[in-house]
Design a protein around this nucleic acid. Structure first.
Lengths: 190, 190
DNA sequence: AGCATTTCTTAACCAAAGTCAATGATATAC
DNA sequence: GTATATCATTGACTTTGGTTAAGAAATGCT
């Protein structure tokens, strides 16, 4: 399991053997059953995750409605906003499949950063890459129509479409389930 | 001018006097005339900016149309995606007013990080806060209708509405100028 | 397996944004 | 200061998504 995490980190920076060991040894692995809520609205989080297997969905309630913010699947890091800012969470984190993650706490992370400054560099770089990805996702969202967003999702995250219920996909795409149904119908006719 | 930058950094972390001095001394200040293009599609950028005065607009061309991604005004940092990733830029950076910025290059930044590791901490923390803000902006965008986005903009960035031409605002809100016109009309009637 | 619940699709109708085209209003250039 | 560009508004019409309600399909539970 840890190997996947090292593989992920290595994509962004050259890890020394020593650092690799430190990471592997201090990694805590946890499993959660489908349906487990990892974080609720109003709660503080001091945990961040790295998904090895399964899927975590982040969503919020607006006007009583469930709106998906993001799906985190294999090899994706999950760091709740309130992890960084200390502000109570506005959104939920839910395992929508049986999920295996590694877990890290803010305290533990801080200690590690002090012991191994290169690790902080790693995290800064990764943070910046995540930031870039996020910016790009936002831009894409803004530039595309719902239909384009759906066809784009088919291209970029084909597996999500199989794994995730339509109504969650719909809210992820910023539309109602009925509209997603219509879009699918429209596309079939082409 | 540098004071504003120190003020901004201090919001996120306690700066030592020494670090403050280092930052002030190594700051390069530049002025650009309205209309100056700082970065073009396809170019690589190794520069990041911090806006003291004026406004930088980032936009891209999609189907020959000019779509605004973001407006950067006083006290906002601007770091092009390609600054981090080394990938040619997909978007433009344009000064839509006479603009004064501080400038930092990737090379200079790297040197500074090696000399002053705390500075890297500062940047990591700021990066994470920016990431949070960005995530939140994205979520807001997804959760709101165009009309809500416009009224929200009035609340949060009133000055933008005065400074920026309607058609740029429209593309920033993800709609056509005609629709923004209609939204404004609708709101007046209330 | 059989029943209940949840999720997905369809249809009719409404509201809002896109499109196209024309007209006013502002800026900008000369 | 006037001519010219650009930008903003308006109107008629189209397209697409939201809403509501119904029924079909899938899933869960005992």
């Amino acid at each position: 399991m840890e190997n996947e995490m090292i593989k992920y980190l290595s994509k962004h920076i050259d890890l020394t053997d020593k650092l690799t060991n430190v990471i592997v040894e201090s990694t805590i692995i946890k499993s959660f059953k489908k349906g487990t809520i990892l974080l609720r609205e109003g709660e503080l989080s001091n945990k961040s995750y790295f998904v090895f297997k399964g899927c975590i969905r982040s969503y919020m309630l607006k006007d009583g409605e469930d709106r998906t913010i993001e799906f985190y699947t294999e090899e994706q890091p999950v760091s709740p906003l309130s992890y960084e800012t200390g502000v109570p969470s506005t959104h939920y984190l839910e395992c929508i499949e049986d999920t295996v993650v590694s877990l890290s706490t803010a305290k533990h992370e801080k200690e590690m950063f002090q012991k191994y400054p290169t690790l902080e560099s790693v995290c800064r770089v990764i943070g910046e890459v995540m930031m870039s990805n996020y910016q790009e996702a936002f831009i894409d969202y803004k530039m595309m129509t719902p239909e384009e967003r759906y066809t784009n999702l088919i291209k970029t995250r084909q597996n999500l479409i199989q794994r995730v219920p339509q109504y969650q996909l719909a809210s992820y795409l910023g539309i109602k389930p009925e509209s997603l149904s219509r879009i699918r119908k429209r596309l079939k006719q082409k």
